[in-house]
Simulated scan of single mutants.
Amino acid sequence: MRNKIALFSLQTFSTTGGIQKMTRTLSYCLNRISEGASYDFAFWSVYDRDQDLMDKYLPAAKFKGFKADKVKFTSEAIALGKHCHTVILSHINLASVGVAIKLINPKCRVVLIAHGIEVWRPLSLLKNLLLKKCDTVMCVSEYTRKEVVRLHGIPFNKCVVINNALDPFMPLPHQLNKPGALLDRYGLTPQNNVLFTLARLANTEQYKGYDQVIKVAGRLKQQFPQLKYVLAGPYDIDEQQRIKQIIAQNSLEDVVILTGFIEEAELTNHFLMADLFVLPSKKEGFGIVFIEAMACGLPVICGNADGSIDAVKGGKLGTAINPDNPDELREQISKYLQNSFPVNQRLELQKECFGCFNTDTYSEKLKNLLLNDRSF
């Protein structure tokens, strides 16, 4: 009898974000592994619809969307779990499913993926029970593993770290020229020193550090009169007002450009447009956006107080700074802009990043996990 492996997620294809991107890549790799191994693979999502599937990641026959019918999803997922060898939960909010499967089918291996802030806090009794009952906690960074162990008393050897990988369908540029159409759109020229940040700008999530970048830009514009800061990502009204207030207080109306939401198809060109990616966040579980930037040859500055450290390989690929130290942030931005980053170094950065975070390496680590081999 063939082994059955199921991946359960909240939402993957009908919206975008770090967890959604990670789960798409995970489903792609699990499907590839299943095609070369002796098991069946199924991927079910609570909030997606069947038609939301991007079938380049996996065939429609292996995907099922429940259109936000949580009761139906829960009952059918538990029923499927009765016959599974392994169940992978993409989020701790699926705790009820994981606990029920473990109770009904104790031999089923339950793997919980731990991303970041969702497990860096006190948890409900049910979520704590899942952490104790599951067989493996797959953490996306060393920092997340450390927090899971510290906050919830989970044994260290029950947690494994598998860093996120680049989306297999992200177009990686061969030429690193600045795209003229985007420069025109934002009123930029090749002579501008362009800082770039891509993040969700939410009033409830003021830990990303882009407000610090705005303030530092106010101190840098005398040194770099061609400085521009492109701050991209969807924003709520309260956060838009807060950001505009900071911009006005620092007289940066001609420096900071708010783009709003960027379509995924335009992401690569936005990285190519910039000279430096800056996101001194304090609560990144990993930070897929960092490896996306570097895969486009764009150097990055990140925070050193969270999972971002894994994305820059401890400083080997990028610069990690104290996110609460604006002087260090200003100094590092200035250093990059003064020395520039020539094309040959950008191409080398791109090569090194892809070597660390490609789907082949990721798939190999997943196979080791499924085989319960912790040697990686």
Score class of each variant (00 low, 15 high):
Met1Gly: 12
Arg2Thr: 09
Lys4Gly: 07
Ile5Thr: 14
Ala6His: 13
Phe8Gln: 06
Ser9Ile: 12
Gln11Glu: 15
Thr12Pro: 12
Thr16Met: 10
Gln20Arg: 11
Lys21Arg: 15
Met22Ile: 01
Tyr28Asn: 02
Ser34His: 06
Ser38Gly: 08
Ala42Lys: 14
Ala42Gly: 13
Phe43Ser: 15
Phe43Pro: 14
Tyr47Trp: 15
Asp48Pro: 03
Lys56Gln: 13
Tyr57Thr: 09
Lys64Gly: 10
Gly65Lys: 08
Lys67Leu: 05
Lys72Glu: 12
Lys72Leu: 15
Ser75Asn: 13
Gly81His: 04
His83Cys: 00
Cys84Pro: 10
His85Leu: 10
His91Trp: 11
Ile92Gly: 06
Gly98Glu: 00
Val99Ala: 14
Ala100Arg: 00
Ile104Leu: 09
Val111Glu: 04
Val111Asn: 02
Leu112His: 08
His115Trp: 08
Ile117Lys: 12
Ile117Asp: 07
Ile117Met: 05
Pro122Cys: 06
Leu123Val: 05
Leu125Val: 12
Lys133Ile: 00
Val140Ala: 04
Val140Trp: 01
Thr144Trp: 09
Thr144Gln: 07
Thr144Val: 14
Lys146Ala: 00
Val149Arg: 05
His152Thr: 08
Phe156His: 08
Met170Trp: 10
Leu183Asp: 13
Asp184Gly: 03
Pro190Val: 01
Asn192Thr: 04
Thr197Gly: 08
Ala202Pro: 07
Thr204Phe: 13
Lys208Ile: 04
Gly209Thr: 02
Tyr210Phe: 09
Val216Lys: 14
Ala217Gly: 15
Gly218Gln: 11
Gly218Met: 13
Lys221Phe: 01
Gln222Arg: 01
Gln226Ser: 15
Gly233Arg: 03
Gly233Pro: 03
Pro234Asp: 04
Lys244Phe: 00
Ile247Asn: 02
Gln249Phe: 09
Asn250Arg: 07
Leu252Gly: 01
Glu253Val: 09
Val255Arg: 09
Thr259Cys: 08
Thr259Pro: 06
Ile262Pro: 10
Glu264Tyr: 15
Ala265Ile: 02
Thr268Leu: 08
Asn269Ser: 15
His270Leu: 11
His270Arg: 10
Phe271Ile: 13
Phe271Gly: 03
Leu272Val: 11
Met273Thr: 11
Phe277Ala: 09
Lys283Leu: 14
Phe286Thr: 03
Ile288Lys: 02
Ile288Tyr: 00
Phe290Val: 13
Ala293His: 08
Ala295Cys: 05
Pro299Thr: 03
Cys302Asn: 02
Gly303Asn: 03
Ser308Gln: 04
Asp310His: 06
Ala311Lys: 01
Lys313Pro: 00
Leu317Trp: 06
Leu317Arg: 07
Asn322Ser: 11
Arg330Asn: 01
Arg330His: 06
Ser334Asn: 03
Ser334Gly: 03
Lys335Leu: 01
Tyr336Ile: 00
Tyr336Glu: 04
Pro342His: 00
Arg346Phe: 00
Arg346Ser: 13
Cys353Gly: 02
Gly355Ala: 06
Phe357Asp: 03
Thr359Ile: 02
Leu366Trp: 05
Leu366Val: 10
Leu370Ile: 01
Leu371Thr: 11
Asp373Leu: 08
Asp373Ser: 00
Phe376Asp: 05
